[in-house]
Design a protein around this nucleic acid. Sequence first.
DNA 1: CTGAAAGCGCTTACAG
DNA 2: CTGAAAGCGCTTACAG
Lengths: 357, 357
Amino acid sequence: MKPQLDKSGSEIGELNRPQLTINDVARLANVSKRTVSRVLNKSPRLKAETRDRVLKIIDEVGYVPDPQARGLAFRQSYLVGFVYDNPNGQYVTEMMQGVLNVLRGAGYELVVHPCHRRSPGFLADVKGFVLRQKLFGVVLPPSVSEDDDLVAMLNEIGCPYTRIAAVALDQPVRMVATNDRIGAAEAARHLADLGHQRIAYISGPQTARSSQERIAGFTQGLAERGITADPRFIVEGNYTFDTGIACTKHLLALDPRPTAIFAGNDETAAGVYLAAHEAGLEIPQDLSVVGYDDSPIVTKLWPALTSVRLPIGEMGGMAARKLLAQAADEVDGEVLHYAVTPTLVVRRSASMPVRGR
Amino acid sequence: MKPQLDKSGSEIGELNRPQLTINDVARLANVSKRTVSRVLNKSPRLKAETRDRVLKIIDEVGYVPDPQARGLAFRQSYLVGFVYDNPNGQYVTEMMQGVLNVLRGAGYELVVHPCHRRSPGFLADVKGFVLRQKLFGVVLPPSVSEDDDLVAMLNEIGCPYTRIAAVALDQPVRMVATNDRIGAAEAARHLADLGHQRIAYISGPQTARSSQERIAGFTQGLAERGITADPRFIVEGNYTFDTGIACTKHLLALDPRPTAIFAGNDETAAGVYLAAHEAGLEIPQDLSVVGYDDSPIVTKLWPALTSVRLPIGEMGGMAARKLLAQAADEVDGEVLHYAVTPTLVVRRSASMPVRGR
DNA sequence: CTGAAAGCGCTTACAG
DNA sequence: CTGAAAGCGCTTACAG
C-alpha cells in the first residue's frame, strides 16, 4: 500500500513526495472526493461504515487537507491574526505561546501583526490585513483590545475576535477578562496588613482600562482595612520605567512621605527602585514596593519584587478557545464563564514599615 | 466607474464589498485575465501601453490579488515562518518587528512557530509546518539557527531559509552573522583598560556557537592588552539567571578572586548582581560587571549595566531581505556582505578596581 | 504580444 | 446516503 504513483506513473521517494490530495484518498477508499470532503467536514448524513473506511485511509496515508485550497473554497483561511501594540515582549510571546497551544490542535496558524494604535493608518491597515488574508479571526491583547473603533470595524466586516482586557468590555464569548480590580485590591490589603498607613499608587495612563480598574481595586482594598486612600498619594504614570522614577521622586518629596508604593506594573516598580536608590532609601526597610505583572524582571531586581501574577499563557489559550467556539457556534458554559483571577506573589520588597518616618 | 455589480446584479455598498478579482480588472482594462496575470508577475514581453493601462486600473480600483488563490496556483504561499526556541521574549518580538518591516512591503506575512529544539518530534513538526503551509521560507534566529539537522531537512524539502547566528555557518545569502567575537573582545578590552587584571568570564553552554565565539573574543581581547586569560576564571553557565548566581558564587570563593566579571549575556549578569549583593559586594566598587545583549533589563538593574548591544531589529530585517533575494535569484553585494557589528554601551557597572583586593 | 482552456486542491448546490 | 459538475481566484503550458 505504501508505494504511491505520481502523475507520470513513476514511483515516488519518501522525500519530496508531493502531498497527497483528496483525490488520492477518494481513489484508495473507492468513493468520490465529495464523500471524502464530507468526512473531513463531519457531515452528519454519512453511513458510519463509509466514514470509518475513509478515516482509516486518511490515517494510514497521513493525509492532511491543503489549508490553502480549503481556504480558497471556503473563502476563509486557516490563519488567526495576533494584532498587538504591547511593548512588553515577554508578555507578547507568552500569550502567543498560549494561543498556539490551542490553535495547533485545530489546524490553525498564528500570523503576527504588531502595530501602532495611534498611527493614522491603523484601522485601514488592520482591515486590509484581515480582508486580504481572509483571517479566521483575531486575538486582541491589551491595549488594542480596548480600541472601540477597531472592534466596530471588525464587526462591520464580520471578523470574529477575542479581546483580552482588564474588565469585561464585550459579550463573554468575545472576552477574556483579567479582573485587575481583584489583583490590585489584594496588593493593597497586603501592604495594609504589613502595617503601612501611607500607601501610594503610581497608576498607568487614565485612558487605559487596566489603569482605572487597578486604581479602583487599590482604593477598595485599602478601604477594607479601614484606610482612606489619600489623593495626594495617587499619581498618574504611563506604565513605563521613566514615569516610575519621576513619580517616585514626586512622592518622596511629600511630607510626610508614603512608606509603601504600589506600582501599576513591574516596569514602573523598577523605576521606583531606581529613585529609591538615588534617594538613599533601602527597600524594604525604608520603602516597601509591590508591582503588577510578575514579569521575568521581578527576580532580577534587588530585593526580589513582590508582584501580582497573571496567567498570561492561559489567557491566550482561552482567547483561542473562544475564537474556535464562536466559529463552531457551540459555546459551553466553561468557556463562557472563564475569568482570570490574579494572585499576589510575595517576595522580599515589602515588609513592616521599619524605618519609614 | 465606482458602482460595481455583484453576481446578482445589485449594487454593492462600501462595506462588505467582496474583494475585486482578476476578472474584474481584466474586464475594466479590456484584456484577458491572462494579461492581468502577466502584469502582476512582471512578465517581460508585454506591450508597455497595455501594462500601463492595466496598472492604472489596478491602482484606481485598489486591486490586490488574493494571496490564497495565488498560492494555490503557485503551489507556494505568501507566508514566512519564524521558527524559534529563544526564551527571551524581547529579543523575539524585536526581531519579528524587523522581519515584518521588510516583509510587509513585499506582501508577505509572518507565521510564528515557537518550538523545543530538544523535543523528540521537533524535526517532523517543523517539516510538517513548512510543507503544509507551503511556506515561502523561514527565518531562524539562535539557537535553532545552529541546528544542522534542521537545516539539512529544509534543504531536502527545498525550503529557503536565513540563519541568524554568532558566526557564518552557511552561504552569505542564507546567513546573518553577528560577529560575537568582536563584541566580546571589546568588552574584555574595556575591563582591561579600566585597570583590571583578574577578569572572569561566565559563558553560555559550550554547545552554543555564540558561546564559543564570545569566549574566543574574550581571550583575544585580553591578549591584546597583554593579559593571559586564567582558565580558572572562565566558567561555564547556560545563559540563565540561575547559572549566573551559581558561577559567581564559585568565582568569588577563589583566592584571589576576580575583580571583574564579564557575563555571557544580560540574564547571567543579573545573576552576578544578585550573588554580589548576597556576598555584600558593591558594584562597581567591589566588582565590575559587563553583560551582553543590551536587553531592556540593563537600565533596571542597579547600577545600570554596561553591555554589548546587537541591532536585533536590523538583523531581522536583513534576514527577510536575504530571503526575498534568494527567491528572486538576484543578490546584490550590499545584501550579500551584510554583517552585524556589536557595540559596547558603557553604563555604570564597571569602574577601576577600587576596593577589589 | 495576447487569449481560451485546463488545472491547483478543495467545497457547494443540485441531483438521484 | 452518495456522485458528477461547477466554482473559489489565481497561473501555466499551448496556440496564434
